[in-house]
């Protein structure tokens, strides 16, 4: 049974984790522009999430706000079920929630390691697992994982972050081949330096290393997600789209 379509877009909704600010907020806005009802998950920034919801509403879109830590799989599962009841299957999932907790490896504590890997990688897996069943049933799904150029590339002080993002890319590839024949695609986007609160403490000298000589914008990353989440990207799966101003070229 295929998902019913309206103007080529299947009936269902989108979920963006970590959608209250930065790249996640830009992704939520972009998916809403494409006509999706967008569920915006956020951990603590309710003001930010409400602001994004208001912007989307002003532009004629609709949202559902879901407060909660992505590491809490039980509450996320409940949110999924509630969302499915009201807005249909989650057919677009953007695993964007992420964190950093930097330190050189000799001094990187277990807590910093665990929190970063749990949030960036394990929670993305659990959310993906929860989303896949209904996507398989719908014979349609788009999963986009927010990776990073840190992972494929080294960045001193980010062993935990790099491991989580490299893991996310490996997970992306593997899940993609498992579900490809059900028209469910799984891809990753790997941003370089993007101008958000997340990177505000990054040394400005880093810009000199970027061929584009500037940081990217959340909207430039969101445009990549928007493509991978679109019906048109149906033959793109298991790949990682790098958006870094040429840094890793």
């Amino acid at each position: 049974m295929s998902a019913e379509t309206t103007n080529g877009k299947p009936e269902g909704c989108a979920l963006v984790t970590g959608g209250s600010r930065g790249i996640g907020a830009a992704v939520a806005r972009a998916l809403a522009e494409d006509g999706w009802h967008v569920a915006i998950n956020y951990r603590s920034d309710s003001d930010g999430a409400e602001e994004v919801a208001k912007e989307i509403a002003d532009a004629g879109g609709t949202t559902t706000l879901i407060a909660g830590d992505v590491r809490d799989s039980e509450s996320l599962n409940k949110a999924f079920t509630a969302l499915e009841g009201e807005h249909g299957r989650v057919l677009v999932l953007v695993n964007n929630a992420g964190m950093r907790d930097d330190g050189l490896s000799p001094q990187l504590g277990d807590d910093a390691w665990d929190r970063v890997v749990d949030t960036n990688l394990s929670a993305a897996f659990r959310t993906t697992r929860r989303a896949l069943g209904p996507m398989l049933r719908a014979r349609y799904g788009r999963i986009v994982n927010m990776a990073s150029i840190v992972g494929p590339r080294a960045n001193a002080g980010q062993a935990n972050y790099a491991a989580s993002k490299a893991g996310l890319i490996g997970m992306t590839r593997t899940v993609a081949v498992e579900v490809a024949r059900r028209n469910v695609t799984v891809n990753a986007v790997a941003p370089g330096l993007v101008d958000t609160k997340f990177t505000e403490d990054v040394n400005g000298d880093a810009l000199g290393e970027i061929p584009a000589r500037r940081a990217g914008t959340p909207e430039e990353v969101a445009a990549c997600v928007r493509f991978l989440a679109s019906p048109e990207a149906s033959y793109v799966t298991g790949t990682t789209l790098t958006v870094d101003g040429g840094l890793s070229a």
Partner: peptide, 10 residues
């Protein structure tokens, strides 16, 4: 195996 996963979902 993927068909069985879908059957489990049903």
């Amino acid at each position: 195996s993927l068909d069985l996963v879908e059957l489990a979902q049903i």
